[in-house]
């Protein structure tokens, strides 16, 4: 998160507006003669306007961040690296299954793959910030399917179902590879567009 002046101003206005609005929402007990006049709508409206101003500034800040390559670049690079490494390791797992036991598979997924997948998931919002929600959804669709099939491979290995381990690692590999490709395509399209 970058604490730009726009971001700080947006946050300040949003919270002043929200707290003001909340205060006027609970300021009075019900006026039994005219229930709707319980809320001082004039003051409430002013607070809401201040808050909406904050929302606009935060939205502008988000849009500015999305086109600022430097600010999202480092985080995005880390996310891309995590995903690529995870994909490579799952591909290695697939290639080595013949020589591994179920216990080895459990250990490999827990030690070699899970931390990278968690790193990617932690930094995933940089994809949305940089490439928009549509591309984010595309990458996450593939990633989530890949992660779920890796989880399935883990369960099958714990239960000893070796054919399922083989099949699920294969599916996980295909989906994670697709996630990497989708992210790379997004980066290339953005670069071409910028150029």
């Amino acid at each position: 998160m970058n604490f730009t002046p726009l971001f700080i101003a947006g946050q300040v206005l949003l919270w002043i507006g929200f707290l003001g609005g909340a205060f006027f929402t609970v300021l009075r007990l019900e006026n039994t003669d005219a229930a709707w006049s319980t809320i001082p709508w004039g003051y409430y409206g002013v607070a809401a306007l201040v808050g909406i101003g904050g929302v606009v500034l935060l939205r502008l800040n988000k849009a500015a961040q999305a086109v600022n390559v430097e600010s999202t670049g480092a985080e995005l690079t880390a996310v891309q690296e995590s995903l690529s490494k995870a994909s490579e390791r799952v591909a290695n797992l697939r290639g080595s299954l013949e020589d591994m036991s179920c216990e080895d598979v459990l250990e490999y997924i827990d030690e070699e793959c899970a931390p990278l997948l968690a790193d990617f998931a932690d930094g995933r919002m940089s994809i949305s910030n940089r490439f928009g929600t549509k591309r984010y959804a595309e990458v996450m669709t593939e990633f989530a399917s890949g992660e779920r099939y890796l989880n399935r491979a883990w369960s099958a290995a714990a239960d000893g179902y070796v054919d399922e381990v083989d099949a699920s690692v294969g599916h996980a590999n295909a989906f994670l590879f697709a996630a990497v490709s989708s992210l790379q395509n997004a980066s290339q399209n953005k670069e071409n567009f910028s150029a």
Partner: peptide, 21 residues
């Protein structure tokens, strides 16, 4: 029914939801 308070609360909830946080 405190419909007025639901409405005022809804405005604040809507504002936070649209903030992008």
């Amino acid at each position: 029914v405190p419909a007025y308070r639901y409405t005022a609360g809804a405005g604040m909830g809507l504002m936070l939801a649209l903030s992008g946080l």
